Simulated scan of single mutants.
Amino acid sequence: MTRSYRGASGAERTRQRRARLIEAGYELLGTEGLAATTMTAVCGRARLTERYFYESFANLDALLVAVLDDAAGTLEERVRTALEKAPARPREKLRAALYAYVELTEQDPRIIRAMLVESLGNPALRARRHEHVHRFAGLVSAHARQHYGDALGDARATIGSLLLVGGLSEVTMSLAAGELDTSWPEIVAAIVDEFDALANG
């Protein structure tokens, strides 16, 4: 029989502690950076002991990867929802997906530092970032092939989607760093035009 404490089962309390550790790791990684995201700092921010850290994670890298997965999952959910609601026209689908990304990064700038900047400084995070880039590119590619059809082709869809996702990451970091004298509406318009030209070229 599973015991409960204050209405929560042991499994639920474990899930809650894990979520607190991930949120603490995300806050540290997204605001103070990789060097400040230590196990001690994470436990302190989550108000949990190291015993509970090891209850959910084998080591710090495992937590960092979970943080990245959680952030990427939030982004993917936003993008998929935007794609589902957008009009069934290729340019509108892409525009909606891009603005879903923009909206999230503006609402929670931590995601830029955690996913795009700090993830480059740790081998485990860098590998996971690579996986997420390819997964998001796969999502873009699948929708592109669906809406552009044979005009795009598999190889061109894959290449174009990787260029879009990878390039968007670089543009985001440059814009956040104040290196670009432009705005998101201009960026989104340029990306939509470029991808449309690739699909119809």
Rank of each mutant, 00 (worst) to 15 (best):
L180H: 09
R51Q: 11
E118G: 03
L139K: 09
L180E: 09
D108N: 08
V133H: 15
A176I: 02
G149Y: 01
G167H: 09
R110I: 07
N59Q: 02
A36W: 08
G149W: 00
I111K: 03
L164G: 06
I187S: 07
A155N: 06
R156D: 06
F136Y: 09
G166A: 04
H134G: 00
S174R: 14
E131T: 03
V102W: 06
R126K: 09
H130C: 00
A36K: 12
T40P: 02
L64H: 13
R129E: 12
H132A: 01
L163S: 03
R95Q: 13
V102A: 04
G44S: 05
W184S: 03
V102T: 04
L104E: 00
A144Q: 13
R13H: 10
V79A: 01
I191V: 15
R89F: 14
T158I: 09
G25P: 11
D154Q: 09
E55V: 04
N122R: 14
E186R: 14
L116V: 08
G166P: 06
G7A: 05
E106G: 12
A24I: 08
T2N: 07
I111W: 10
A100M: 03
I159T: 14
H143P: 00
T14C: 02
S161N: 02
E103A: 15
A189K: 13
T172S: 10
E27F: 01
M115W: 06
A8L: 06
E76N: 02
E194Y: 06
E50W: 01
R129Y: 12
S169N: 04
Y52K: 09
L180F: 02
V42Y: 13
G178Y: 02
A72F: 07
A82H: 08
G160Q: 08
R6D: 11
V65M: 05
E170F: 11
A66N: 00
N200R: 15
E106H: 14
R15V: 03
A62T: 01
T81L: 08
R126M: 01
R95V: 00
V42D: 11
E77T: 01
S9F: 05
R18V: 03
R47A: 12
L64R: 15
R6M: 06
L63H: 14
D150W: 00
E186N: 08
R20D: 14
G25K: 09
M39E: 14
V102M: 04
L64T: 06
A190T: 11
G166V: 02
Q107H: 07
T158L: 10
L68Q: 15
Y101T: 02
R51M: 02
T40S: 12
H143I: 00
Y26T: 05
A11W: 05
R91G: 05
Y99G: 03
W184K: 00
M1F: 07
P185N: 10
G153I: 13
I22Q: 10
M115N: 09
E131D: 12
Y99Q: 08
L120P: 01
Y52D: 10
S4E: 14
R91A: 12
A97G: 04
L139N: 04
R78T: 01
A72T: 09
T105V: 03
M1C: 07
G149H: 08
M115S: 08
L60I: 06
L168D: 04
E84C: 05
V188T: 11
D108I: 01
G121Q: 04
G149S: 11
I22D: 12
A151Y: 15
A86E: 05
G7R: 03
M39G: 13
